[in-house]
């Protein structure tokens, strides 16, 4: 279908912006980047830092596959600009394990077979890490509600809830 009604925009062309310096501490390592302002945190991680564990699902904040921890809080990395996170500490799925020991959530997801294709798993695990840090979930109902921002197309939800309950018991 032809675009019959384009949104209004300013008539003068917008000058190409200079790239903006961005400092991020990613999984404990300080990284210096020069990024165009429209680079999302997700694209900065995947395309500029080669950290492809964080997944791009919908790219609109609806699926949760891109969930990472910023300053300890879980967020959708597709809906924030990297320049807005200058000087923030970012933890991705690659940063959860210590040396050769899996994070309790990673081990629990294995123990409970809490995935099928695995595409949503990094987001599920980062989101669950945020949930545990928030300390608000007490029951399985709470976990289901507070994990509703993470969609699993394979439908592994019962095992995801069980895995999170196991990890919560250990924290």
């Amino acid at each position: 279908m032809a675009q019959t009604n384009s949104p209004q925009r300013s008539k003068a062309p917008i000058a190409a912006p200079d790239k903006i310096p961005v400092a991020l501490t990613v999984n404990g390592v300080e990284r210096q980047l020069e990024l165009a302002p429209w680079t999302t945190l997700l694209d900065a991680l995947r395309d500029h830092l080669d950290l492809t564990g964080t997944k791009k699902g919908c790219d609109h904040g609806q699926c949760g596959a891109c969930t990472v921890l910023v300053d300890g809080r879980r967020i959708n990395s597709c809906l924030t600009l990297a320049v807005m996170q200058d000087r923030a500490a970012v933890t991705t799925i690659e940063g959860l394990a210590t040396d050769d020991v899996l994070h309790a959530l990673q081990q629990a997801f294995i123990d409970h077979d809490a995935f099928q294709c695995g595409y949503c798993t990094p987001g599920q695990i980062c989101s669950a890490a945020g949930l545990i840090a928030e300390g608000r979930a007490k029951t399985a109902d709470d976990i289901r509600e507070l994990m509703s921002g993470n969609i699993c197309r394979c439908g592994a939800y019962p095992n995801i809830v069980a895995a999170i309950q196991q990890a919560m018991g250990q924290s």
Binding site: G64, R74, L79, S127, S148
Partner: peptide
């Protein structure tokens, strides 16, 4: 409203 990730931001 929204999800935990969105409400955090």
């Amino acid at each position: 409203g929204a999800s935990a990730q969105l409400r955090n931001v």
